[in-house]
Write a protein that binds this DNA or RNA. Structure first.
Lengths: 207, 207
DNA sequence: CACTCTTGTTGGCGCACCGCCAACAATGGC
DNA sequence: GCCATTGTTGGCGGTGCGCCAACAAGAGTG
């Protein structure tokens, strides 16, 4: 006879635990590689599990992906009752601080989750998009006559880049979802950019 | 013998033209379906072409996709010299108007391009993300004590939703790219949200 | 007008991966 | 020690991609 005592050929776990392990492996995979580059074979191997088991627990690959996003995009349940009762300014300041704290603690996971481009980072795709982004950004800086000092240029670019996301998002609300009208978007974009130019830039550079 | 005069079995085009036709078909496909749901077979059929030809012109499927994004994300080359020489406020106003004009004309194509989630809309995925989004948005409205009136609630939500994109984008600059520091992000988020609450909301509701 | 050379175009082979399912094995109850 | 339960496996069928050798349409040439 051959050497016995080989032990069980596979470890038997209760459904919840196994599911969690697979989900963890899947999250790690989808967080680093873009969707098409993730193979269920890889995920299964990383989870130490047969390929078919993934289908058994999650259904299709797409279902698994949606589950990963769903889990990662759930906001950390930090208590919000701690917000003070002061003026609007004070409450805003506290809320921003809370938000940044929450981000810093929970790592970069759920920033990524809310954005499939970051989720499963694709350097080449990112390069293409930021390329187009920078063109628009420089155009804006030009229009506002603000990017003269090269030392401040990078900082300004970063600020305007974030503004660009606000702008695009507003455009989506207007053109795609029709939850905002054009005049409303106009006001929003004008006042926020003005706030950045008049308030944010001086405070950031002067501080 | 069978009926002759079948004509040429396929039409012969110069490289540029054929390439453009395939790219058009691919753009249409990627614009409506998410990446994995787009098969090169479909694109080839839509372009009236053999599957292999796509590979010949664009290489891999991913390469084709990148090309589509690259083309779609190039900003329409509208002249920007028309911007007036007035105050900062006037220039901002003109720039915003120009931006909205450009969007309205060029359709929704390139808003989508800059955002792979919109490019190739995926309703289910979208639902998951906006779900998580709305939770955060309501939390913010709560913190600022602003969402009392149900009639105004939807409008406020839309505004804060766009602000959320600014916030996430700023967080990315801070945590992922390290192009902004935490204090800088803090100032940005505080002042822009304040501008929305103090300036945008009154003007939008009062106007 | 035949012949050839160039080049756009095709069709299918090989491979990887997904979705599914029947057989199997590990644990708990009788 | 046998059986029921259920977590787990391995492989079969199908689909889609990447590649390449053969082919055909048109232009040039004598």
């Amino acid at each position: 006879m051959t050497t016995s005592a080989d032990g069980p050929r596979f470890q038997r776990l209760d459904a919840d635990r196994r599911r969690a392990e697979i989900l963890a492996a899947a999250t790690a995979a989808f967080a680093t590689r873009p969707y098409p580059a993730v193979s269920l074979t890889d995920v299964a191997q990383a989870a130490g599990v047969a390929r078919g088991l993934i289908n058994h627990y999650f259904g299709t690959k797409r279902d698994l992906y949606l589950e990963v996003v769903r889990e990662a995009s759930t906001v950390p349940s930090v208590a919000v009752e701690e917000l003070p009762d002061g003026t609007v300014e004070e409450r805003i300041d506290a809320a921003v601080a809370w938000y940044l704290d929450a981000l810093q603690e929970s790592g970069t996971t759920w920033i990524a989750a809310a954005d499939p481009m970051v989720m499963g980072r694709d350097p080449e795709l990112e390069a293409i998009l930021t390329e187009a982004e920078n063109i628009t950004v420089d155009r804006v800086l030009d229009a506002v006559r603000l990017g003269d000092d090269p030392a401040r240029r990078d900082l300004l670019r970063a600020l305007v880049r974030t503004y660009g996301h606000l702008a695009r998002s507003a455009a989506r609300e207007w053109l795609l979802h029709e939850t905002l009208t054009r005049p409303q978007v106009h006001v929003l974009l004008r006042r926020t950019l003005l706030a950045i130019v008049d308030d944010v830039v001086p405070e950031v550079l002067g501080g």
